[in-house]
């Protein structure tokens, strides 16, 4: 499986330590579905990269409040970050259970992941609602528009992942002898972990670093960073 030799690609099961019997032979040695998932995740990096960059560009540009420092709650979000991180752990355990063919454990770990993912979404709904009550709506200022767009798309990814995992859990519960295969769970796991790493970036940039931004004040860290970069360039 580790060979990318297209001319003499060995049958997948020869190179693999755990050959899924149904897997078709591919000239990369990697199953098409898994390859496609990685290509998708690579492209999703671009998607979130653009949204994060947009947030950073408009950082400190809002001319009316509330500003991040008025409204961002870092301790609460640290807890929700921890919850999402732990869901990655339960997800990888679910993948291991599926690979071992342990259907019961698979369902248990999937349910844990779904609950933790739901918990994360719960935190996000709470946060969004709090912001709305405090007067930060989508159209209030540049901060709110870029913040809600970025975290909203991330939340949508998590929600989609939860539905995906629910489907896997239901399928395993109803059909113990058949699907989902180890690879089915593996691919869902890749998606889930990706959503987690996106949040790692968002948490650092929007909360830990950007959570203390005030209004259009050049004194904040980003502006100092720009000056520093400009100093190097010029």
């Amino acid at each position: 499986m580790a060979h990318a030799d297209t001319t003499h690609a060995p049958p997948a099961h020869e190179a693999s330590a755990h050959p899924p019997a149904h897997e078709e032979e591919t000239n990369t040695g990697i199953s098409h579905r898994k390859l496609l998932m990685w290509v998708f995740l690579g492209s999703d990096c671009l998607f979130f990269g653009s949204l994060i960059a947009t947030y950073m560009v408009y950082r400190g540009q809002s001319i009316v409040g509330p500003y991040p420092i008025d409204i961002i709650d870092v301790p609460i979000t640290t807890i929700s970050t921890f919850v999402l991180l732990m869901s990655s752990f339960t997800m990888v355990m679910a993948v291991a259970a599926a690979r071992n063919g342990n259907q019961k454990r698979l369902i248990q770990w999937l349910v844990c992941t779904i609950v933790l993912g739901g918990g994360f979404i719960g935190f996000q709904v709470y946060e969004f609602n709090l912001f709305r009550v405090e007067g930060l709506r989508y159209e209030t200022n540049l901060f709110s528009s870029t913040f809600f767009t970025l975290t909203g798309f991330h939340g949508a990814h998590v929600t989609l992942g939860i539905f995906w995992l629910i489907c896997l859990a239901v399928i395993s519960a109803r059909n113990p002898a058949g699907r989902p295969s180890g690879e089915d769970v593996d691919i869902a796991g890749l998606y889930w972990h990706f959503v987690d790493i996106v949040w790692i970036v968002i948490f650092t940039l929007l909360y830990l670093i950007g959570g203390f931004d005030a209004g259009p004040d050049v004194g904040h860290a980003a502006a100092q960073g720009w000056q520093w970069i400009t100093g190097i360039i010029t």
Binding site: I30, L46, V57
Partner: peptide, 30 residues
Amino acid sequence: FMHLKFESPLLWQIFVAGLALGLVVALSLV
């Protein structure tokens, strides 16, 4: 968690390519 350490280098290349493009786009915008 995503097992990339244990996968074919091709998957690394695909993911890192996407990641690098994303970083370049983000840095260019900023």
